[in-house]
Design a protein around this nucleic acid. Structure first.
Length: 563
RNA sequence: GCGCCCGUAGCUCAGUUGGAUAGAGCAUCGGACUUCUAAUCCGGAGGUCGCAGGUUCGAAUCCUGCCGGGCGUGCCA
C-alpha cells in the first residue's frame, strides 16, 4: 500500500513541477485513529522548496490524488492539521488483505527484502570456562531472534558461535580442574585458603590457581577425568587432558542450555583454527607491512591511536602469545572472506572498548569495516522481591542461565530478554516472570492464542467450518475492522524490526494484536450468530491465530493450544 | 579524566529515519460475566519527556553545556 501511494503521490508531484527526483515521500501510520490509516508530511516538507504554505500545497496534492487514486484501495484523502495528507483504506482493500493472509497461513509475514543475501549472526560466543550466565542469555536470545528476523525477511542466515580454547583463560581452567583432580587421586594433598569477595574465604588444594574457577562444576569435571584415567595423570606435566575434558563437557552443557531456549547454532568457530591455518599470522604480517605496528617492551603493538582510539593496543604479548584481539581480527577477516552480505555481532556492554580496535584493523586490511554491525546490549539485573539478586562470578554462585530457565521457563525467559530495547539496562523481575497471571505479558499473548484455538474448536463442534468460501465483506463491525488493520501490519512490523535489528518491536506489536483480538472476542460472538457472519468471524479469528503464532515463532516462543 | 549507553506517569518501559492532543502494562479508583477460556474487556485519575540553551514551520527525538545512574578505560576475554 505504501508503495502504491508513493507512486501515486509522485505522479501528482510531477504535475506541480520543481520537486527534485530525490525527494523521498514518507508515509506512516498516524498515532491517532481519526487521522486515518496512513499519513504523509510531504506538503510540509515541500513548503520551503515550493515557496508556498504547506496547507495549500497539501490541498493541491490531495485534489490531484482524489482524481487518480483507486477507490477500491483508498476511500478518502484528507488534509488536516498544519498540512498532513491523511489516507483512509477502503473496506475492500482490507478484505483482500485478510484473504491473502489466510491464504499465506504459516508463511504470512515472510518477505523477500533480503532475498539472495547471506547473513552471518555471531552470538553467545562465550568461552567454555563455565555455565552460561543470565547475561549470556540476553546475548543468545537477542542474536537468535535477530537471526530469525533476517530469515523471515528472506536472508540466508548462518548462526555462529565463536570460542577460544587457547590462551590463559583455558590454562587457568585446566589448572583448576587438575588441582581438584589431584585432591581426588592423591592420598594426601595440602590445602590453602583463597579469599573471595569481602572477607569470604574458601579452602582449596595447594596447587589451585589463585584466580582459578571455584564452581562445583570444576569438581564434577575432575571426577570424570578421575573416573576415566584413575591416578595415572598425576605424573604428567601437561594440562592438556584437563583442558580438553573441561572444554568438551562445558561446551556440551552450553549446547544443552541453548537447546532449552530452542537455539541451535549452525557453526561453532574455534579460535584455534585461525592459528592452525596461519590466519592470525597473516593479520599480524599485513598490519606490520602497512606500518601500523611497532615493538615496545618486547611486545608488538597496534597503532590504534592513529584511528582516533585512546591508546595503542598490544597484538602480541611479551610472552609471544597473541592477545584476544588479534585472532578476533583474523576471525572477522574470515567473515568478509566467506563473503557474507550482512555481518552482525552481538556483544555485551563490557566489550564496548574492544571492538572498535578490531574494526580499525579491518579497515587497514582493506575491508569495509562499516559493514560490521555491532549490537551492544546493556547488562541484566535479576530482581527478586524488589531487590537485586547479588552475584559473585568469582565463586560461581551466580544464577546461571540454566537456573533461570528452570525457575521461569524458556518461553518467559526469551520474552523478557526480548521485550526491552537492547540498549537499556534490563531489570529481570523473577517474581513477575514466574507469575502466571495478567501481570505477565507472555501469558497475555499465549492466552490469546489458546483462546482462539478454543473458540475455533467450539465453532467446529457446532458445525461451522472453514470449507465454505467466507463472505469477508460482512466484517464491518468497528472491532472487526480494527483487528483486521492490526493483523495486516504484521509483515511491515517484521520488516521494521529486521531492518532496525530490533527484536523488541515484535513483542510490542503482538501485544497490540492480542488486545485487538480480545476486544473483538469480547464484543463479537461467533457461535450463535447467523452462519454467514459466524463463518466470516471464524476466518478472522483464524487470521489472528496465524499472526500470533507466526509472531511467537519469530520470537522463539511456543504458541500453546491451551493453557 | 576520557569513551559508549541510559534518564519519559508511583513502578517497569514503548515512542527507528524530527510531525498532529507524548503511549502501554503494572499499581490505584470505578464498571462489565445465565452465553465461544474473566489469565478477559470498558472507563477514570496520574507527565516541567533529568536541567539549561540552540537549530526550525514543528523537538521526547537533532546540536552544545551541565546534573544523575550503568558499563568500559588490561600484555583478561
Amino acid at each position: 500500500m505504501k508503495d502504491y501511494l508513493r507512486t501515486e503521490i509522485r505522479h501528482v508531484l510531477d504535475t506541480l513541477g520543481d520537486v527534485p527526483e530525490s525527494f523521498e515521500i514518507e508515509l506512516e501510520k498516524p498515532a491517532r485513529e481519526e487521522h486515518g490509516d496512513l499519513a504523509t508530511n510531504t506538503a510540509m516538507r515541500l513548503a520551503s522548496v515550493l515557496q508556498s504554505n504547506p496547507r495549500s500545497i497539501a490541498e493541491d496534492i490531495a485534489e490531484g490524488l482524489r482524481e487518480q487514486v483507486d477507490p477500491d484501495r483508498i476511500r478518502a484523502v484528507e488534509v488536516a492539521g498544519p498540512g498532513f495528507i491523511n489516507f483512509r483504506f477502503s473496506q475492500n482493500y482490507l478484505f483482500r488483505g485478510l484473504a491473502d493472509l489466510l491464504e499465506a497461513g504459516e508463511w504470512y509475514g515472510r518477505s523477500d527484502q533480503g532475498a539472495g543475501r547471506t547473513a552471518l549472526v555471531e552470538y553467545v560466543s562465550a568461552n567454555p570456562t563455565g555455565p552460561l550466565t543470565v547475561g549470556h542469555g540476553r546475548n543468545a536470545v537477542l542474536g537468535d531472534t535477530i537471526a530469525n528476523l533476517l530469515d523471515w525477511t528472506g536472508h540466508e542466515v548462518t548462526r555462529e558461535y565463536y570460542f577460544n580454547d587457547a590462551g590463559r583463560q583455558m590454562r587457568v581452567l585446566g589448572a583448576s580442574v587438575r588441582a581438584r583432580y589431584e585432591a581426588m587421586a592423591a592420598d594426601e594433598v595440602p590445602t590453602k585458603t583463597i579469599e573471595v569477595d569481602e572477607g569470604d574465604a574458601v579452602e582449596v588444594p595447594e596447587s589451585f590457581p589463585e584466580d582459578g574457577y571455584l564452581g562445583d562444576y570444576i569438581t564434577d569435571i575432575a571426577r570424570s577425568v578421575y573416573d576415566e584415567h584413575g591416578a595415572s595423570l598425576l605424573t604428567t606435566e601437561t594440562l592438556r587432558p584437563f583442558i580438553e575434558a573441561a572444554e568438551e563437557q562445558i561446551l556440551a552443557e552450553i549446547e544443552e542450555t541453548l537447546a532449552d531456549l530452542d537455539i541451535h547454532m549452525d557453526a561453532f568457530f574455534n579460535e584455534q583454527s585461525l592459528y592452525d591455518e596461519g590466519q592470525v599470522q597473516s593479520v599480524v604480517d599485513a598490519l606490520t607491512e602497512n606500518g601500523y605496528t611497532y615493538e615496545e617492551d618486547e611486545a608488538l603493538w597496534f597503532k590504534a591511536t592513529e584511528f582516533g582510539r585512546e591508546k595503542d593496543r598490544v597484538l602480541i604479548k611479551q610472552s609471544g602469545e597473541a592477545t584476544y584481539r588479534t585472532p578476533d581480527i583474523a576471525y572477522h577477516v574470515t567473515k568478509f572472506e566467506r563473503d557474507f552480505d550482512v555481518i552482525v555481532d552481538i556483544f555485551g556492554a563490557d566489550h564496548i572498548d574492544a571492538y572498535p580496535d578490531v574494526l580499525a584493523a579491518l579497515d587497514v586490511l582493506g575491508y569495509d569495516a562499516d559493514r560490521v554491525e555491532v549490537i551492544l546490549y546493556q547488562f541484566v539485573t535479576l530482581v527478586r522481591g524488589g531487590e537485586p539478586v547479588k552475584m559473585s562470578t568469582r565463586r560461581a554462585n551466580y544464577v546461571t542461565l540454566d537456573d533461570l530457565i528452570e525457575e521461569v521457563g524458556a518461553d518467559v525467559a526469551r520474552f523478557f530478554f526480548l521485550m526491552r530495547s537492547s540498549d537499556t539496562h534490563l531489570n529481570f523481575d523473577l517474581e513477575l516472570a514466574k507469575e502466571a497471571s495478567d501481570k505477565n505479558p507472555v501469558f497475555y499473548l499465549q492466552y490469546a492464542h489458546a483462546r482462539i484455538c478454543s473458540v475455533i474448536d467450539k465453532a467446529e463442534e457446532v458445525g461451522l467450518s472453514f470449507d465454505a468460501e467466507p463472505d469477508l465483506s460482512l466484517l464491518t463491525h468497528e472491532d472487526e475492522v480494527a483487528l483486521m488493520k492490526e493483523l495486516l501490519r504484521f509483515p511491515t512490523e517484521l520488516q521494521k524490526a529486521a531492518e532496525a535489528r530490533a527484536p523488541h518491536f515484535v513483542p510490542t506489536y503482538l501485544r497490540e494484536v492480542a488486545t485487538a483480538f480480545s476486544q473483538f472476542y469480547d464484543r463479537c460472538r461467533i457461535v450463535g450468530e447467523d452462519d454467514e457472519l459466524a463463518v466470516a468471524r471464524l476466518h478472522l479469528a483464524r487470521a489472528a491465530q496465524i499472526v500470533l503464532r507466526n509472531g511467537l515463532t519469530v520470537l522463539g516462543i511456543a504458541a500453546p493450544r491451551q493453557m
